[in-house]
């Protein structure tokens, strides 16, 4: 397979996943922002949404204040933000167009259809109801694309590279949301677990669609360290770092097997997975969650570079 084709497949999956993640963050933000002050605390939800999306820098060069209007525009429809939902779908389609021959008709149909429908939303929603519909639509577009890829693609290198992109992006997203939320909610070792916090913690779970899963796994009220446990260490949770790395290792192994050669990408992915497998939550909290996540994000980025060097260029 052409290196460029693999690169396009990898980024196609990443952009679709990113669009879905942004839509989830915004849905949760919208929900929190409508809570009475007494339940929502003092934090600016919109500012935190921008931080979770990882684009505080780019945002502040264009806007002076983070509020519903500016953040919605920036994260959803802005053409100046390279990672806005609109640009994610634009870039996803550009990548798809460049590798049409490697996609199934169903996948192309999903991504091209999404791109065509995107125009319907113009430059932004005219009401909150429409905005919520838009966010739902984005998530469905991503699910549709992912489902079609899963159901129709040959299980060969094209499929594995697109999975690598998906899990890379997902691991990055989960790590960011944990980092920002815990940073905001646990500035020091304050007492936690008051009724006010419940909605904030539940919101994290909601943004990775894990609220129900949490109750099934822990059969407990919502507690920060259990949330961290679920999203970092639980293999059975599809958006957890452990699960993402299980999948990254597996797909890299498929590629190595097909090509008859292991490389730095395989070794690095395995090392990260092993680190996740050998940790316990108490240790991570003692060491400092922020430091742990920070270290994870950089090693995740290093894996991205290793994959790029080994296969995509």
């Amino acid at each position: 397979m052409l290196s460029r084709t693999a690169d396009n497949l990898y980024w196609l999956a990443r952009y679709v996943e990113r669009a879905e993640y942004l839509a989830r963050i915004l849905e949760v933000t919208q929900r929190l922002a409508t809570l009475p002050i007494a339940y929502g605390g003092e934090t600016n939800e919109w500012e935190s949404a921008v931080a979770t999306a990882g684009c505080t820098g780019a945002f502040s060069t264009q806007y002076s204040e983070a509020n519903e209007e500016t953040v919605t525009e920036f994260l959803c429809f802005s053409t100046a933000n390279p990672s806005s939902i609109r640009n994610c779908f634009e870039l996803a389609r550009t990548n798809a167009r460049a590798v049409r021959t490697a996609l199934t008709m169903e996948m192309w149909d999903a991504i091209n259809g999404t791109w065509l429908q995107l125009k319907r939303f113009g430059n932004g929603p005219t009401s909150r109801e429409e905005f919520m519909r838009f966010l739902r639509w984005v998530q469905e577009a991503s699910l549709r694309f992912d489902g079609r890829a899963y159901r129709t693609m040959l299980r060969n290198d094209a499929y594995w590279f697109s999975r690598l992109g998906l899990y890379q992006e997902r691991a990055d997203n989960t790590a960011r949301i944990l980092d920002v939320k815990f940073h905001l909610l646990l500035p020091t070792n304050e007492r936690i677990g008051g009724p006010l916090d419940y909605f904030q913690w539940a919101a994290i779970l909601r943004s990775v669609s894990a609220l129900t899963a949490y109750h099934w796994v822990y059969k407990e009220s919502v507690k920060p360290w259990l949330i961290a446990d679920l999203l970092i260490l639980k293999d059975e949770m599809p958006r957890s770092l452990a699960s993402c790395y299980g999948n990254l290792v597996q797909n890299l192994d498929y590629i190595a097997q097909a090509y008859g050669r292991q490389g730095p990408a395989q070794r690095q992915a395995r090392a990260i997975r092993t680190r996740l497998q050998n940790r316990r939550m108490e240790e991570i909290f003692q060491q400092g969650l922020h430091e742990f996540i920070g270290e994870f994000i950089s090693s995740n980025n290093r894996l991205d570079s290793a994959i790029t060097e080994q296969y995509l260029m």
Binding site: M1, L2, S3, R4, T5, T101, D157, Y259, Y311, M313
Partner: peptide
């Protein structure tokens, strides 16, 4: 390219060494 079952390449996917053309692949 799809119907032929051949790679669809752009100039940057190709390089020439010893007067022979190669394409950059994942392998």
């Amino acid at each position: 390219a799809d119907k032929l079952g051949v790679e669809l390449v752009e100039g940057r996917d190709l390089f020439v060494k010893d007067e022979t053309v190669y394409m950059r692949t994942t392998q």
